[in-house]
Design a binder for these strands. Structure first.
Lengths: 285, 285
DNA sequence: CATTCAGTTTGCATCTGTGCAAATGTAGCT
DNA sequence: AGCTACATTTGCACAGATGCAAACTGAATG
């Protein structure tokens, strides 16, 4: 499928005759004719037909020309100079993410600002997990979830399973079951159904010494030796203070998603961000 | 500007090397190289650069590749068969218009249904002038206005000036001024500021025998000889029962617009409708 | 430091696609 | 009916784009 032939088709639709099309494109009549024919063999359908000496688009040809028109509309966005393209990579980019992500990927974020000095990053972190992208509170969201919001588009950058971890000092104690250890769980305000269900079944409530409402707090408290906690393996394994003290837990798997609105999906800044992060997160995949 | 070269650029971005790109496209390495170079001279900027033996896209090249990607996304909509394209021209098309338009352009509407038998037209006419396109009460609106709603897109199909017309029997009476004739005016519910202001200045209220709320009613009543009325010239001149009894009135000019939502602007049915009507209305322009 | 590998560049013969010009076809006009 | 204007089709010679093969470059490896 040759896009150049679609250009010819579009020009022909506008000009109406081979002659005018040829003049417009600065090529010969015969070439126009033959390019349209080649398009037909590519597409497998008749695009023009000869009605008493004049060529007119078939209904099919008109449809094809329509999408060519849409393509042209996109092509207008071609940066026409280097300056033009640089402008696309400047401005503000608001990113909604968890502090946990900042904690583990500060280097990656930093590398981004070095690589694209004209882009001002605004990190909207905090404990509320759901920053509404649809309300434009951020351009991009980095979310940890099993399934992202359907109205958003993006990619799965990291996959992680979960297990119970604890500081070495705790792990080295002797204990008959995990229920004997001190634990760190979720605050009631956090809607963590899977975790809550598991904890209820395996851990006596009195053993849950801390209830926190953010993943980063869970992680830091666990590293500080406050108790055992269910943590994502990809991250926990990178800490030399933590030890895995259970098998992999099933049903906990989540993914790290890079997400944006449909409208922004072709935005240069957003794409630069996605490319940078998707590549940078490869070691975690 | 050759779109085919953009295709090559896009493929190169995805494959990463000339070699792989060449295989993917089924052409030779050297051709890939030269096509990219030709793109550079077309665009006037460097698209790839040689960093220690490997070719990588420049920042500018990445931007260009992005729009190529957007073009590709559009190209996916290319109907791949005649059946495919026919499907695009079937279904329902709701049109909001004035009865006046139906009255004068019934032939044109009819010709449309003959030409596109698979499109079921739904005409939403009536006296309320503003059918909300943004609420999807209709796909297309044919509106008579000076300026269309800014959120809508479309084209100006007919331009008309206005003058006072009356049935020949009335026009043939002897009268000193237009104020002596019986008149047809707008109902109070119709927001016709320009007309109301003119009438107030030139016509005694008691002479306004009829007040109607739709343009078609104005037209038909005038043709029936009920009184004088301000009518659009393009239409009034086509009636052999009506005579122009004033100069052209200034400040009354309006246009007939074909309008749709931005989202639907590339829809096949809508475009077919626009093309058909814009051409069919040429004699009125 | 030589060797290999993966990639890009360049020179040259070839072939495809292009432009030109003549032929052909259709509608409209006198 | 013949003429004109405008349009498409076709045959042929040629230029430019293509593929091939060889030369070239840099990085990694032992």
């Amino acid at each position: 499928m040759n896009w150049a032939d679609l250009q010819v088709l579009l020009a022909f639709q506008r000009e109406g005759t081979l002659q005018k099309t040829a003049v417009k494109l600065g090529i010969d009549i015969s070439t126009v004719s033959r390019r349209l024919r080649s398009l037909e063999t590519d597409l497998g359908s008749t695009v023009i037909e000869n009605v008493s000496g004049r060529l007119v688009l078939t209904s099919y040809g008109e449809q094809a020309a329509r999408t060519a028109e849409a393509m042209e509309a996109e092509s207008e966005n071609l940066p026409r100079s280097v300056k033009d393209s640089e402008k696309l990579l400047s401005g503000v980019l608001r990113i909604a993410l968890l502090d946990l992500v900042v904690f583990f990927h500060a280097d990656l974020i930093n590398a981004f600002t070095v690589r694209y000095p004209q882009i001002a990053l605004e990190l909207v972190s905090g404990t509320t997990r759901m920053h509404s992208l649809t309300r434009r509170e951020a351009d991009v969201a980095i979310r940890i979830a099993k399934q992202p919001d359907e109205t958003l588009v993006g990619m799965r950058a990291v996959h992680s399973k979960y297990a119970v971890y604890a500081h070495t000092s705790i792990a080295n104690q002797s204990y008959a079951s995990l229920g004997e250890l001190p634990w760190i769980g979720w605050d009631a305000a956090v809607n963590a159904r899977v975790t809550d269900a598991w904890m209820e079944r395996h851990i006596p409530t009195r053993q849950v010494r801390y209830r926190v409402n953010s993943p980063i707090a869970q992680f830091l408290m666990t590293e500080a030796g406050s108790g055992a906690c269910i943590l994502p393996i990809v991250y926990a394994e990178r800490s030399d203070k933590l030890v895995k003290i259970s098998d992999v837990l099933s049903g906990f798997d989540t993914d790290l998603w890079l997400l944006t609105h449909r409208d922004l999906r072709r935005n240069a800044r957003v794409q630069a961000f996605f490319d940078h992060f998707y590549q940078g997160l490869a070691p975690f995949r």
